[in-house]
């Protein structure tokens, strides 16, 4: 089915277990809405082209690049941003194992890794690689991120 919208449309989005009513234009991405209208600035606009993963959020528990989703299509979904994750194991491990430096990629990486560790109790190296290679980090060389994920797995 093709959805056609013209002009502005009011939609309601469920984000981090809260309902937000927001007026969107048909060409606005979920990332635009989160950052510009809902003050959820944890997800970052690193490329707005699906290449970097800095904008990653969860849509129904699956990681999704929010720059690649149109906001109007998001009604009825359960959306989680980094702001919705509180003191999770992976967040603590990121601090413990130096999983970040500048922090710009960190929201996206944590959200992605959280979903991975939610789906698999003990993901193997190949699975970790397949999931996390959708995100870019320019600062760390990925060692700290790898160690953080492994720490969570080792603690299980």
């Amino acid at each position: 089915m093709m959805i056609t919208y013209k002009g502005n449309k009011e939609i309601s989005l469920k984000i981090n277990n809260e309902i937000y009513k927001v007026v969107v234009k048909p060409n606005e991405t979920l990332l635009n809405i989160l950052r510009d209208k809902l003050e959820l600035t944890g997800p970052k606009a690193g490329c707005e082209n699906g290449d970097c993963g800095a904008c990653t959020v969860l849509i129904n528990d699956k990681p999704f690049k929010s720059c690649m989703a149109l906001a109007v299509e998001m009604e009825g979904n359960d959306i989680t941003t980094i702001e919705g994750l509180k003191k999770t194991e992976i967040q603590k491990a990121f601090i413990d194992k130096e999983g970040y430096q500048c922090g710009y990629c960190t929201s996206g990486f944590i959200v992605n890794a959280y979903a991975l560790l939610d789906k698999y109790k003990k993901p193997n190296e190949q699975q970790i690689k397949e999931w996390l290679n959708s995100n870019l980090c320019r600062c760390t060389g990925y060692e700290g991120i790898e160690r953080a994920v492994n720490k969570v797995i080792d603690n299980r």
Binding site: E83, D96, Y100
Partner: peptide
């Protein structure tokens, strides 16, 4: 010693320029 900005950065709280109003 652990960095001082850890909690801000892992919670999405750290504000960069484009996040400021």
């Amino acid at each position: 010693i652990k960095r001082n900005d850890g909690l801000d950065k892992i919670s999405g709280d750290q504000k960069y320029l484009d996040d400021l109003k």
